[in-house]
Design a protein around this nucleic acid. Structure first.
Length: 210
DNA sequence: AACTTATTCAACCGCATAATG
DNA sequence: ACATTATGCGGTTGAATAAGT
């Protein structure tokens, strides 16, 4: 992250590194209006100082609704092992058989849990017991895993139309976002979502506009 | 409590392929 | 048919965090 040399003033360089809550909101808001795809164009139109690839990755691996967060279940573990033995490192292909899981997640799981268990790496609990022992391994982000081993982000989105269809409005989004979602949420959209939406100050002008 | 080592996973990079002009 | 641009995928990196000493 030392490498996020985001430029501010003249906004020269495209931003890299971790996504901020404001960026998440802008991206989700834009996609909820215009749909996904045309990532380069989306990045520009939404006013995100990111490249299309970055937006796509963020959306697919993290913001997209229906994503299942939390530990890989024993059943999923079995599927991964089975498919990997047949397909090899075809993570995207394997992920297609695991609803709510991303190729990145499967890949990470394989590398850290399965592959490492190969002789010489024994050290961690077996994948299955690890999986059942629950929880929220997903540290920094992850939606609520409370009392529910496997959670899933779900549609419908909170209506984020206020986040803006075009970037004229996005200017205010950051301000609104930081006003409503301060740092205790870890700067993450879905962190916010779980405990946030019921606490909205609905009388706020921003929401009245909905 | 302070320090070191290991683990996790979000995000980047580079390459291959597809789509478009 | 070719060149350019966009998209998708797999490999890799490194910051944050957890676990161990």
């Amino acid at each position: 992250m030392a490498r996020m040399m985001c430029g501010r003033a003249g906004e020269p360089a495209v931003r890299k590194g971790p996504w901020t809550l404001e960026e998440d909101l802008i991206l989700v808001g834009y996609i909820s209006h215009h749909g996904e795809g045309s990532w380069d164009n989306l990045a520009r139109s939404a006013g995100l100082n990111r490249n299309g690839k970055s937006c796509r990755l963020r959306w697919l691996n993290y913001l997209r609704p229906g994503l299942r967060r939390g530990s890989i279940s024993p059943e999923e573990d079995m599927v991964i092992r089975e498919l990997h033995s047949r397909l090899g490192n075809k993570w995207a292909e394997i992920a297609k058989h695991l609803p709510g899981r991303t190729d990145n997640e499967v890949k990470n799981y394989w590398r850290t849990k399965v592959h490492k268990k190969a002789p010489g790496h024994q050290k961690q609990l077996p994948a299955t017991s690890e999986a059942t022992s629950s929880v929220s391994a997903s540290t920094s982000h992850a939606s609520s895993t409370v009392g529910d081993e496997y959670t899933q982000t779900s549609f419908p989105y909170p209506d984020l139309s206020w986040v803006a269809a075009d970037h004229h409005e996005t200017v205010d989004v950051g301000a609104s976002a930081t006003r409503f979602f301060p740092s205790e949420f870890g700067g993450n959209f879905w962190n916010v979502q779980d405990n946030f939406w019921e606490t909205l100050p609905l009388s706020d002008p921003v929401y009245e506009a909905l």
